[in-house]
Simulated assay, not measured.
Amino acid sequence: MKVGLAGTGWRAQMYVRVMKALGEEFEVSAVYVHSESSREREEKNFPGKVYTDYDEFLATKPDCVVFMLKYGAALPFAEKAMEQGIPVLCETPPAATVEELQAWYQAKEKYNGKVQVAEQYCFQPYYQALIHMIDQGKLGTISNLDISQAHDYHGMSVMRRLLGTGMENCRITARTYDFPVNYHCGREGLHKGEKTIVDTRKRAEFVFPDGKVGFFDFAGEQYFNYFRTRHLTLQGDCGEVHDQQAAWLGQDGYPVQGSIQRDELGQYSNLEGYGMRSLRLNGEILYRNPYADRDLRLTDEEIAVAQMMEGMKTYVETGKEVYPLEEALQDTYLFLMMDEAAKEGKEIQTQDQCWKKQ
């Protein structure tokens, strides 16, 4: 599939790495950048394929355009692609305000646009394992989730998927807190911790009409900081998962306990090379890495991105959706309402939006 790439930042670079790893499935056929200096830099990576004129970029007729632009900037560019019938994959979040979210949906409806959003979190192996357990009924009826693993719209995506709340409205309360923490790791990598920064922690409750509750708790440093780890607790009436530990009701009516373990290669004198083959619970395979047999050594995040790109390819070819625009709009809407609840210091009741199908 010929991919037009709009944007060349940190996130775009990850997508390029994954597409290269997937081999002949994908070709970055054109790259759009906003400045001449960016064009000169990217020409080294994509000789003869870099454009500063967006119309010329679209004129190359890619099979889809992947937008990796800054927060809230993609819509006017995506509209032009939709108008020309070119499928769109937009990085999260698609917009920065409720009005912009509505404009995205209106543009899709106006042009009958083919739009998906690169919300990859639920494709990560751990979440896929949890989804498998839920689908099995191993935990019974899910009632609540305490998630401290992903920020804002990513957290909303995981919360809605694991709770199974779909487009349901909810009541939201939220607060933010500032705490000092030593800074020693970020996108630039691990380094000496020579300064203390202020890390803002956001806590919120999402109460749904059927009694399900999502407890959200996240601080920006949790992705990289060794002193701010991530955690998750998922509870049903017949079981619980807390991080890697699980407990559920066995067939004999008695509780069973176990741990979700990674089947890792390349350790303890194993010479197969480093990689993850599967996730198991007491020997049962909950998740099998679809790229392990292809000898692709990908991180969990790269696996999720690969699944997103292959899902986009299927969408372009068949129309089967990988992550619909409407789902991403709802994720972002809930995150915006959470921020409003924290800012206003009062409970927010969400409302049906134009993208909710009746």
Rank of each mutant, 00 (worst) to 15 (best):
W10T: 15
R11Q: 13
Q13K: 11
E24I: 01
E25T: 02
E27S: 13
V31T: 07
V33D: 08
E40W: 03
E42C: 01
E42H: 08
K44H: 10
K44S: 11
L69Q: 08
K70F: 12
K70Q: 11
A78Q: 03
A81T: 10
E83V: 05
Q84H: 08
I86F: 02
P93G: 07
A96R: 14
E100W: 05
Q102F: 00
A103D: 13
A103G: 06
W104M: 08
G113C: 07
V115Y: 07
V117K: 04
A118I: 06
E119M: 15
C122R: 13
Q128V: 04
I131C: 01
G137E: 04
G140A: 09
I142R: 12
N144V: 00
A150H: 07
Y153D: 14
G155A: 13
S157W: 06
S157H: 15
R160H: 05
G164Q: 10
T165N: 04
R171I: 03
T173F: 03
T176V: 15
F179G: 00
F179R: 12
F179A: 11
N182K: 13
G186T: 15
R187T: 14
R187W: 15
E188H: 10
E194S: 10
V198T: 15
T200P: 00
P209D: 02
F215R: 14
A219L: 04
Q222S: 12
Y226V: 11
Q235T: 13
C238P: 00
H242L: 14
Q245K: 15
V256R: 15
G258F: 10
Y268L: 07
R277H: 05
G283R: 10
G283V: 04
L286D: 01
Y287G: 00
D293H: 11
R294D: 09
L298I: 09
E302Q: 15
A306M: 09
E310I: 05
L325W: 01
L329Q: 07
F335Q: 08
L336C: 10
W355K: 05
